[in-house]
Amino acid sequence: MATITSINKEPGVDKVVILLIGGRGVGKHRLATALIQTRSSLTVEVRTCVKLPLPKENEQERPYIDLIIFIVDMTSRASKMILEESLPYLMPECFVDKVCFVAMNSSMVNSYSFGIDRVIDCGDLYGCPVLYGDLQSRSHLDNLAQQIINQAEVKAGLKYNISSNFVTASFHGP
């Protein structure tokens, strides 16, 4: 199986590759379009997949992945199952500064299939940030895309004196 690891390829210069993982209908393509259209000093390439592991056929052409986003649709239990089944395919070092969870449709509280605490607990367990998004309005989607791009810029080393470890340490506190 093709596990994702952070040490087998070289990162691009002034380019960031974001991998969006989520079931069908969670809004990957819309989020990908919003990411590309967001103003940034970087060139953004987005790769989408339904679940891990990634197909072996694309192994050679696949570039270095800077940021992995797990998109969980709060209104779909199947989406949570995809997240739980995909996490074992990531190498442990990826969780240090490459992974982020997005709880999509977080404003539709009445339609939740499971509690938001499950996603928050997942974020705490793996030490990864959790973002909240919505497909209902363009402004929410752009806001989410901007947050993801900010993270990507930190991981690509474009923010002066800020590294992803520093962000993680300051987030969790002493």
Binding site: H29, I36, V44, E45, R47, T48, V50, L54, P55
Partner: peptide, 15 residues
């Protein structure tokens, strides 16, 4: 409605 974009790649395109 799919807008083809060269910067968006589907890993499971074949499938």
């Amino acid at each position: 409605e799919f807008v083809e974009n060269s910067n968006i790649v589907n890993e499971h395109e074949h499938e």
